[in-house]
Design a protein around this nucleic acid. Structure first.
Length: 686
DNA sequence: CATGACAGGCTT
DNA sequence: AAGCCTGTCATG
């Protein structure tokens, strides 16, 4: 079967047989080792589409006792062990009778991609099934992998954002899975299903971290208490807080601090500002130091550098690709008089002031914090509401070029370089140095600036993370001190070891945004929110899709009723006409539930016996966790253990205050994170 | 419900 | 003192 002449594509994607680079259609990925092969050069190409999907390359389909002659290039590069070690490791997988074929394939794949070491194979075994539950069910039906940046069609099918966009780019207008028409809005503006992102990443993190106790927080929705001192003017107190004083700063960094904000600068929570952390508005974002100016998009000083930028759709030339984006400088607009906005440019931008500050950060290679605002409507990577911290980026190049409006604009190429994964990716690790994207508009650009020397913030191969290679610039501002002399209570975070089952933690991620319980018959709206079918339907109970106009005097054409998604302003009336269950998601939930039940039946002689073990986590940890949430809801009022247990059950349907877009000062904190919610609890001190 | 007016804080 | 990728309410 396997011919000696069969060879895969090399690291550059060039077929090692015919030496050409196969087109995407002619390239076939092995299901086991994910190596690309040139279909037309195969001695035994797959016969059908179905075969192609499950195709295993000649190297991987060899019987286990046949020694691999050639170790594939990517495997060789990834594995520091010798070829014979690799083969031995593969054999040990093959001979493990406790594994299913699928699990074996998975482990072989991990071994070859370098993500597992021979020494921790046993560890991988234990929680590997958590990932497998997702892997079997949630795979993108185009690339057959767990979706990277998952998007969900209204017909309930999940794809990678990239695969989906590629599909749409081929002028396809129906779902690749079931051929249901895709609504134009979904096609042009797919939203990332962040519940899936979290779940996939969590499964991966728990798998690779084995214990799970050390996993970092990666997604965090936050609503701190409102400022101690804010709203100085009368008008600002009432409304239009755009000009309000933005209140107390919670972090202890100076205004000209570069790079991530770490735990030691966060006396409030001792966490630091986490990637994925989301605030209601620019003022709250400012209070956590991610981006200080509350109107301007750039924070910086022309003789010093720029510390942060906001992407909020203010400049039409911006272009967002997630891990990299093209940013436009400020200025060029007539803002004389009282104007804050004027979308029209009337003169060229120059590299001065804030634009120069960005250029300094480019030249020095400083990390620049990036926040994305919901106001950036054109980007799939923007949050649906509020302002989100997305980590640090480096400005690799900048230049000037005529923008869409004809006047020159300053342009910046930002590339992500953060140790934490971006909020939209289910990948469990942060950035690696990546090749610069080719930017077409550089042709004909002027004033092109590139960094000459080595960057101050760079990737350290030994430590496998991004660090300051040169000392960060000294702050020129006095460090602001926190004064807690007003008697406000300070919360400290203490870490606690995790005892909650991995599967239970994962299951909790699949909660309905209405009832807050694990979803029953999950639906995913086109705006990427997940609900129980019953909850969503009851939210619109009694409403009809259309209404008559004109009070019956004369019959006008019927008008559609707007039906807003319970957690965002999107009109989902079309979706509600024929909502399709996200069956892939449902399968995942059901198999998690089944396995948890089995575990409980096996282990649990249960003390109080009353727990259903399904959507409640029957451990002390869970009580503590909820205590944390309740605690914040109640303000700083201490809660006794018994009270906690009583309030443990969440309020039922209708309690969706914390997902409605605009809410006020007493909004409950919604803590939604990966690891810390189970491993850390707040404590009241004085 | 899209567009526009505009208030009045904070940084450069 | 000029400038700013806000946020809200008032319009048709």
């Amino acid at each position: 079967m396997a011919h000696d002449s069969d060879l895969p594509c090399d690291g550059d994607g060039v077929c090692m047989v015919c030496k050409t680079k196969p087109s995407e259609n002619e390239s076939l990925l092995c299901k086991t080792c994910a190596t690309p092969w040139h279909v037309t050069c195969l001695s035994a190409p797959p016969n059908s589409m179905a075969d192609a999907v499950n195709w295993e390359c000649p190297d991987c389909s060899l019987p286990p006792d046949v020694p691999r002659v050639a170790v594939k290039q990517n495997a060789a590069a990834a594995s520091s062990s010798s070829g014979s070690d690799l083969i031995a490791a593969i054999r040990s997988i093959e001979s493990d009778s406790s594994l299913t074929e699928q699990e074996k394939a998975k482990q072989r794949q991990e071994l070859l991609s370098g993500s597992a070491k021979a020494s921790n194979l046993e560890v991988v075994n234990t929680d590997n099934d958590v990932l497998n539950i997702l892997d079997g069910s949630l795979n993108c039906s185009m690339c057959m992998q767990l979706p990277e940046r998952p998007v969900t069609t209204p017909c309930g099918h999940n794809f990678c954002l990239k695969c989906f966009q590629k599909w749409i780019g081929q002028r396809k207008s129906t779902c690749a899975n079931c051929r249901t028409p895709i609504p134009p809005k979904m096609a042009s503006q797919p939203r990332i299903n962040s519940a899936l992102v979290i779940a996939i990443r969590m499964a991966r993190t728990l798998r690779s971290g084995a214990s799970g106790g050390t996993s970092k927080v990666a997604h965090f929705i936050h609503n701190q208490n409102r400022p101690d001192k804010a709203f100085t003017t009368e008008r600002a107190k009432k409304s239009g807080k755009a000009n309000a004083c933005s209140g107390k700063i919670f972090v202890t960094i100076p205004g000209d601090h570069f790079g991530p904000i770490s735990a030691e600068n966060d006396p409030e929570r001792n966490l630091g500002v986490l990637v994925g952390e989301t605030w209601e508005d620019r003022f709250e974002c400012r209070q956590w130091g991610a981006h200080f100016p509350h109107v301007a998009g750039i924070a910086g000083q022309s003789d010093y550098g720029a510390q942060s930028v906001a992407l909020s759709g203010g400049y039409e030339d911006d272009e967002d690709h997630g891990e990299w984006f093209l940013y436009t400088g400020s200025g060029g607009r007539d803002l004389s008089g009282n104007k804050r906005t004027n979308k029209l440019q009337s003169f060229d931008q120059k590299f001065d002031k804030l634009n120069e500050a960005l250029r300094v950060s480019c030249l020095k290679g400083y990390p620049v914090r990036v926040v994305r605002s919901h106001k950036e409507k054109r980007s799939s990577y923007a949050p649906e509401k509020g302002v989100r911290y997305d980590g640090v980026y480096r400005i690799e190049k900048c230049w000037r070029k005529a923008g869409k409006q004809g006047f020159k604009v300053c342009r910046y190429l930002f590339v992500r370089c953060d140790n934490e994964p971006a909020p939209w990716t289910s990948d469990e690790h942060g950035d690696r140095p990546r090749a610069l994207p080719s930017v077409k508009e550089l042709n004909g650009a002027t004033d092109i600036t590139e960094r000459k020397g080595s960057p101050a913030w760079d990737y350290d191969e030994e430590k496998s993370c991004w660090i300051w290679k040169k000392a960060p610039p000294n702050s020129r501002k006095p460090i602001q001190c926190q004064n807690d002399d007003d008697g406000t209570k300070v919360r400290k975070v203490r870490s606690k070891k995790n005892t909650v089952s991995v599967k239970q933690r994962l299951l909790k991620e699949f909660s309905c945004l209405i009832c807050r319980e694990v979803m029953n018959l999950p639906l995913t709206t086109p705006c990427a929110h997940n609900f129980c079918k019953a909850c969503l339907e009851s939210a619109f109970a009694g409403q009809s899709f259309t209404r008559q106009r004109g009070e019956g005097r004369r019959t006008l054409r019927v008008q559609k009723n707007i039906m807003k998604c319970p957690s965002c302003p999107t009109d989902i009336s079309d979706f509600l006409q024929n909502p399709q269950i996200n069956r892939e998601l449902m399968n995942v939930i059901e198999s998690l539930q089944r396995q948890i039940e089995e575990e409980n039946a096996g282990l649990n002689e249960d003390v109080d016996g009353g727990s259903d073990g399904k959507d409640e986590v029957p451990t002390e940890e869970a009580a503590e966790t909820d205590k944390c949430v309740e605690d914040d809801k109640e303000g700083a009022k201490p809660i006794t253990e018994t009270e906690t247990k009583q309030t443990n059950k969440r309020k039922r349907s209708g309690d969706i205050d914390d997902v409605s877009p605009k809410k006020s000062l007493d909004k409950p904190d919604v803590v939604h994170n990966l690891g810390e919610v189970d491993s850390a609890i707040p404590e009241l001190l004085v």
